[in-house]
Nucleic acid binder design. Structure first.
Length: 472
DNA sequence: CGACCAAGATATACATCTTGGTCGGTGCGGTATT
């Protein structure tokens, strides 16, 4: 009977590996935590049950507006019209229209921030919500603590809308992230489905270099390595600088306008740009299965981030390459980025002191000489609301220590003299199975000779983009 | 912390060195100001 729906609604003959079990658990009404690879057919596992039960609304919380847009487009393409979204792209009237007619919809996509808007929460509390899906659930752990606080509130919001059945879906989650997801969403003895984190087609390489050697090595590397390739840097400036020094490269980072980002990304997707130099902004929602190589010019902040980023190579199953270029001291930029996200002890003390002496929250930014929309101030505000002075200081200390530990584990990937794949899999509580072409420690990795992609107008585009950005 | 840039200092007439300031990731939302 699952198959009939699969055929009728989605047009597929059979399920892909792992999908059926998840759907069974969903239909039984269990909470679910599913860890499956990108492109593994995640969305089908929460969409198909909706057609089986055929009553009520499925809400999907998604981290990026562009992901929401993509998903909705896909759903509409197969003829489903009962899908809507609530984001900042809609006007107040449009949102009201959707909320007043929730019965018309089968799927509702929104950001966690929208779910936290009181009138949205209220409307959904009064609707027949069948299931709450949290897509890219690792964001709860990755962003919920400080960067996007609404992610940490999803459990509470779930309760407010009547504690519907809940399904968390992601591609990357070690034990501690799983625990975080289960706890923050208050999942009730969830059925867990965990796909292996191993990507045997990706060869793992680390090259330890001196600082001065890196740029030269990168240039040689992108000449020899199979393309399309993604080069990750830690800063926007570095991304721009490297892309100007490499032939056939363009850059991508969060400081660009939406239009420019769309443009550059679609060029890369259409194989018109062989090399993309970018910050961590580039990734989620980039559906490209023929990326052959991912190079890290600077070390990422966590093993999860590293796995997600290298995981963008070789999705078509053909051999792919992950190269990390490491020079001593490269981790400092990540240390800095961690530090600057948290208030200093003295700032915390001052904030608590001011509040005790009768200052109001609105005076506080001025007194502490901070911007009122400074993320550090927002975190401070939250601490004031929830914790005592000592608790706040300890919380920050703990969080920083945890982040430093994560960075340390990532550095170990570069520093160990044992199999890198074994280390990475152990991080995800898995045992390694021996394989050919594993990593640079296990044996030499050779790049195949591959014909380069056709370079269609790359130079032209680059010129135009340089012109656009040079005025900013 | 370190990369980068601009202004100033040095020692000598053109370029190099020193000093000081600034900046540094990920995105939602929705408000304000040239």
């Amino acid at each position: 009977m699952f198959e009939a729906t699969l055929k009728r609604v989605f047009g597929y003959e059979e399920f892909r590996a792992g999908q059926r079990e998840i759907i069974e658990a969903v239909v039984e009404g269990q909470d679910v935590l599913a860890i499956m690879p990108t492109g593994g057919g995640k969305s089908l596992t929460f969409q198909l049950p909706s057609y089986l039960k055929n009553n009520g609304l499925t809400i999907i919380v998604s981290p990026l507006l562009s992901l929401i847009e993509d998903q909705i487009l896909h759903i509409r393409e197969r003829g489903e019209r009962g899908v809507a979204r609530l984001t900042s792209m809609e006007s107040l009237e449009e949102k009201q229209e959707v909320l007043n007619h929730l019965k018309r919809f089968r799927f509702l996509y929104l950001s966690p921030e929208q779910l936290a808007v009181p009138y949205v929460t209220r409307a959904l509390a009064n609707a027949n919500v069948q299931m709450l899906v949290i897509d890219e659930a690792h964001c709860i752990s990755q962003w919920g603590h400080e960067f996007r606080p609404e992610y940490a509130r999803l459990g509470e919001l779930r309760k407010q809308i009547g504690s519907p059945q809940c399904m968390a879906v992601t591609a990357t989650a070690p034990e501690n992230v799983k625990r975080d997801i289960i706890e923050k969403l208050a999942l009730f003895t969830p059925a867990q489905f965990v796909h292996s984190a191993n990507r045997p087609e990706i060869r793992l390489i680390v090259e330890r270099l001196e600082k001065e050697e890196k740029i030269g090595r990168l240039k040689a590397l992108v000449r020899d390595i199979p393309k399309p390739a993604v080069v990750y840097t830690a800063t926007r400036r570095e991304a721009e600088k490297l892309s100007s020094e490499l032939e056939d490269a363009m850059f991508y980072h969060g400081g660009m306008s939406t239009e420019d980002r769309r443009l550059v990304q679609s060029q890369f997707l259409r194989d018109e740009v062989p090399i993309m130099v970018c910050t961590s902004a580039f990734g989620m929602g980039v559906n490209k299965d023929n990326v052959r190589s991912v190079i890290h010019y600077q070390i990422p902040a966590t093993v999860e981030a590293y796995m997600q980023e290298i995981g963008r190579a070789g999705r078509d199953g053909n051999p792919a390459f992950a190269v990390l270029l490491y020079a001593e001291g490269d981790e400092r930029i990540q240390q800095f980025l961690i530090d600057q996200q948290y208030p200093k002890d003295e700032q915390i003390r001052n904030a608590y002191f001011e509040m005790e002496n009768g200052s109001t929250l609105s005076q506080l930014p001025r007194l502490l000489r901070m911007g009122e929309d400074d993320p550090v101030f927002l975190l401070l505000k939250q601490l004031l609301a929830e914790r005592s002075l000592q608790e706040a200081i300890d919380w920050v200390k703990d969080r920083k220590r945890a982040r430093y530990r994560q960075l340390g584990q990532m550095m170990d990937v570069a520093l160990i003299n044992t199999c890198r794949r074994a280390y990475l899999l152990r991080y995800f509580s898995e045992e390694k199975v021996d394989q050919e072409d594993c990593c640079d420690v296990c044996g030499p990795i050779v790049f195949p000779e591959t014909p380069d992609l056709v370079r269609k107008n790359v130079t032209e585009w680059k010129k135009r983009l340089t012109q656009i950005f040079s005025f900013e």
